[in-house]
Amino acid sequence: MNLVIVLLIIGLLMIVAGCWCLMRTFHLLKMTIGIEVAMKAVTLFLVLAGRISGKIALSETFVITVMVAEVIVAVVGTGTAVGLFRKYGSMDVRNLKQLKG
């Protein structure tokens, strides 16, 4: 049990928490928050990978790019959720029943 294993386990637990949020919550914005929670763990993994392989500068550039993507995902997710709110007057996932086959 060294530092790497502990950080890996904590990261994996974080991803489990994020995926749990996607599955269980009824709130649209909360789902976007779930994605962001899982993304935190991924950021940690990338930096850890850089430290293990000795290429910390490379992984830092990865992390910076991932952050830009993360922000845009938050913008699009929030924008879509707000659009749905304007249609239904609530942020409930259970309203989404238009598409069925």
Partner: peptide
């Protein structure tokens, strides 16, 4: 991240995320 040595990434994490 700062402690792990990714100083610039830590800064970005704090300000952006």
């Amino acid at each position: 991240l700062y402690v792990l040595g990714a100083h610039l990434a830590a800064l970005f994490e704090l300000s952006v995320c």
